[in-house]
Design a binder for these strands. Structure first.
Lengths: 224, 224
DNA sequence: AATTGTTTGAAACATACGTTTGAGACGGAA
DNA sequence: TTCCGTCTCAAACGTATGTTTCAAACAATT
């Protein structure tokens, strides 16, 4: 095999195993076994298991963020002087996500599940790495979201953001299984692109739900 | 110490450590260390680590499901011949959750995070245990949900259910981290009881979002 | 062909894990 | 007291983990 075919084979295997089993539950021996390379290759090429985890994220997150930023550029240009509305921001995000991983002939579910694990599993180094590397794109998305929902307080928007993220990551991460269950139950097939068509209105409606007044500490500013 | 003080001490320590670190990342030595008991006590009293995990869930899920069923009884009685509406179903669920763990002088965050981990971490035995033990209550909740959203097609309800589940499980499973981030960013502290107050309107609005007509295969029956 | 730097290979490393063992301590019943 | 079942304790078990080692194979340059 070519010089650094090994690197890609390790990344491919790790990507798949991490997604389906989590980080701690996936050993280097499983990865190297699946990849058909020597055990020591991981530490030789990546230095440590932690660095391998980060490399897996970097390989799909870097091109995704580039594509997303470009899509945001187009969106803001189209919307002219007005800031883009909520539903188009969401739709740009999700459609960029859906389009992306075809490059590598991989189900989108894998990347969504990885993204979910990054939040869920307590890997401090990963959170720090993602924060340091991709906070720019994330902040830009948050800014677009903020301009699209000026009526929300900062706190409310923060939580609703998390709800959106959860609904998206959770559903898409198991989209294959969910689609199969639905097929068995109702005889209806739902391609991934169509799940997004169900998802976006749900998210948009949730984001724009009327705020209920509850025991606030008097700190419910509705601005920056 | 009394006869089976040890059992409770182990459960207390395990509960807390599992919630903040996950299952695989928490060793029996951490648990017994924190509990101040001997390492072998876990295998003596519970048989295995898997059984301990299940025991931790059983200790809070069993009384919770009993309380929830009672609350559902009251709700259905109050609503008279009509089925209870969506928001009250959701609110009964969440408020029962919030009220419950005070009995044991414990932050609700721990139980929320445990519940999230049950979905997130790939512990096959746990999922099977919860399915076998608590599916009755879960099914009843699903039935209430169905009667509260008769306008939705079966397909649409299926997906929106997943979105709700995702938003809830995902957010609650990392509520501590998210609360901390929010504190660093905006200087606002959000007790877990209040997260639920943000969550319910979001979910209700999402469930009741207007359906958009998209490429349907002509099979959008709105019945059972 | 000789030499260099890079990559692989099998084996061992030290450590941590869940679990088991067997001896001893405790407390109530005879 | 003697007995017996319950429980605790320190120690060890076997296994699996991430990582390191060092010799061999390889590729490219001189």
């Amino acid at each position: 095999m070519a010089q650094s075919d090994t690197v890609d084979r390790i990344l491919d295997a790790a990507e798949e195993l991490f997604a389906e089993r989590g980080f701690s539950e996936t050993s280097l021996r499983m990865i190297t076994g699946k990849a058909g390379v020597n055990l020591a290759a991981v530490n030789y090429h990546f230095g440590s298991k932690k660095s391998l985890i980060q490399a897996v994220f970097a390989r799909f997150l870097t091109p995704f963020c580039i594509a997303l930023e470009a899509a945001f550029d187009r969106l803001e240009a189209e919307a002219a002087p007005e800031p883009p509305d909520l539903e188009s921001v969401l739709r740009v995000l999700t459609s960029t996500l859906v389009e992306m991983p075809r490059q590598h002939d991989r189900s989108i579910a894998i990347y969504m599940r990885l993204q979910g694990l990054a939040y869920t599993q307590s890997q401090g180094h990963l959170r720090r790495f993602l924060e340091a590397e991709y906070s720019h794109t994330f902040d830009r998305f948050m800014r677009l979201l903020k301009n699209a929902t000026p009526e929300l307080s900062a706190v409310e928007r923060y939580w609703r953001n998390q709800f959106m993220l959860g609904a998206t990551a959770f559903t898409l991460s198991s989209s294959d299984a969910l689609t199969e269950i639905l097929w068995n139950k109702l005889g209806v097939e739902t391609p991934n692109e169509e799940i997004v068509d169900h998802l976006v209105p749900f998210l948009a409606a949730g984001m724009q739900a009327h705020t209920v007044a509850h025991g606030n500490r008097g700190n419910s500013d509705s601005g920056a």
